[in-house]
């Protein structure tokens, strides 16, 4: 009985803390938006060089691994589709399946998880180190909003670079898949892309890229929240970094599920 109570209590506390952090993340989002829009008029702009520096870090450095991952996923999808559809003699539909799943699901998800692991952890480590070294306090004392100076640039950079990388991943994955599909179906690459274009709608693309924008915000906000809550020296940084990555990936997958549910039922 007491054990059950204790479990319930722990659960309750966990939920409360979770709700707290979601609220915090929402507040960070709103405040970042505030600075991005109204900062310039108050002569406290979100500095573009900071945004570009973040974009470079997030985007350019992830490009090689994103390319490799996307190509691999594209090929795997092609092999899988050709094989399973081949069982019914329906290989010709492979293009449809590959196109839809890459654009709507695989590219946004893979890039989201990749960036959560790479840039989310880097961001959480940077924020929590700054927190522990009192650099965040120093900003506030100087009269600089840490949200404007640190969170907003990272958030904006994420929300530009993650969809951009997703777009790139779509192109790479579809091309890589195309190499296998064209060989198997003995059609030209041009015919394959023409097929894709006739199958895919703008709606599919906005679905995929829209999700990736959402994932980007999740990664930046989860990392910022974890950074801001850091305490306890270098050990605290490590803990927060791990937690940020795990939570961003969990958030991405959950939101993806909700998205799929809402869209298909709506």
């Amino acid at each position: 009985m007491t054990a059950m109570l204790r479990v319930a209590e722990g659960l309750g506390r966990g939920v409360l803390r979770g709700a707290d952090e979601v609220g915090f993340a929402a507040a960070l989002f709103v405040e970042s938006l505030f600075w991005a829009v109204l900062g310039p008029a108050r002569r406290q702009p979100v500095r573009l060089p900071a945004v570009f520096a973040q974009m470079l870090q997030i985007g350019l450095e992830a490009l090689p691994i994103a390319t490799v991952l996307a190509a691999t996923i594209g090929m795997m999808l092609a092999i899988q589709s050709l094989y399973s559809l081949g069982l019914f003699g329906a290989e010709h539909f492979a293009t449809v399946g590959i196109g839809l799943s890459v654009v709507r699901e695989f590219a946004p998800l893979i890039i989201g998880i990749l960036i959560a692991g790479r840039s989310g952890s880097a961001l959480a480590a940077r924020f929590s180190t700054m927190m522990i070294n009192q650099e965040v306090d120093a900003l506030r004392v100087i009269g600089i909003s840490p949200v404007r100076f640190l969170v907003a640039p990272a958030l904006i950079a994420m929300m530009i670079m993650v969809p951009a990388l997703t777009m790139w991943a779509i192109l790479v994955a579809l091309t890589a898949a195309g190499l296998l599909v064209t060989a198997a179906l003995e059609i030209s690459l041009g015919a394959y892309f023409a097929d894709l274009i006739s199958v895919l709608s703008v709606n599919d693309l906005t679905h995929g890229l829209g999700k990736s924008v959402l994932f980007a915000a999740l990664i930046a906000l989860v990392s910022a929240v974890n950074g801001a809550l850091a305490d306890g020296g270098a050990e605290g940084v490590g803990r927060r970094t791990t937690r940020a990555v795990v939570h961003s990936i969990a958030a991405i997958i959950m939101v993806d599920m909700i998205f799929a549910f809402v869209v298909t039922s709506g």
């Binding site: 180190t129 306090d137 120093a138």
Partner: peptide
């Protein structure tokens, strides 16, 4: 305010650190 550990921004050199309040 001069903080205990200095709290300089580790991504900026000394001059940029000191100039930051002026820039803002």
């Amino acid at each position: 305010v001069a903080f205990q550990g200095g709290a300089l921004f580790s991504s900026m050199n000394v001059l940029d650190n000191i100039m930051l309040p002026l820039r803002e």
